[in-house]
Amino acid sequence: MKRMLYYMERDFRRWLRGRVNVLSTLILPAAWLIFVGLALPIRFTDNYLDFIAPGILVLTMLGASLQGGSLLMFDKVLGYLQKFLALPAPRESILFGKILFITLRGLIQATVILAIAILLGANFLNPALIASIYAVLFIFGILLSSVMATIALKVEDHDSYAAINAMVSMPLFFTSSALMPYDQMPGWLAAIARLNPVSYAIDAIRDLQAGVFPATTLLGLLIGAALVLLVSVMVFRRATV
């Protein structure tokens, strides 16, 4: 499992060298937080920022994870992945390294968003709350980045990956409980939103905000992450390039 850390270390070195990337991934969630969180006239709550902040935190993880698959695609197009697959190191260490990097990078970005949210006046200043939010985001990040890394392994090139990414990202966000509570949604949207894994993560954070332990949503996320990881490991073990 040490090898997983070496793969991760490599991606961190690369990431920190590309300074534009570090910044660009933060723009979208920050914009949501400021322009929607502060400006949207909403009637169902008097503190929309508090309501939307969990959604934006999860959106940050979502964006980071979706973008993360392209790292594997990059290795594949470069021919680097072929070398990795011919290494004696267990192949899942490539997968775990990528997942860990993507998730930790997402958490770093989420930290910045969390700081902005707190500065804007959202009520998050509770160490236990923040720690449990990180735990939820971590599980969610693993779930999604594992899916995206496996998709990247299977699809042909950057274009196909970008197409899948575009197809998945916005619908996942808009059909979640990020922007409004279930009782404010039209019935059909609420039905979709209750199935959406993004809602699971958001609802878990909202429960934590309200001081409730989100047992069911957390369990749902954990089971989802475990299943997806299992499938991904199998796909990676059998990968031929």
Binding site: R10, R13, R14, R17, L78, G79, Y80
Partner: peptide
């Protein structure tokens, strides 16, 4: 292919 990491 020249499979080395240009960013390292």
């Amino acid at each position: 292919d020249m499979a080395v990491d240009p960013k390292l």
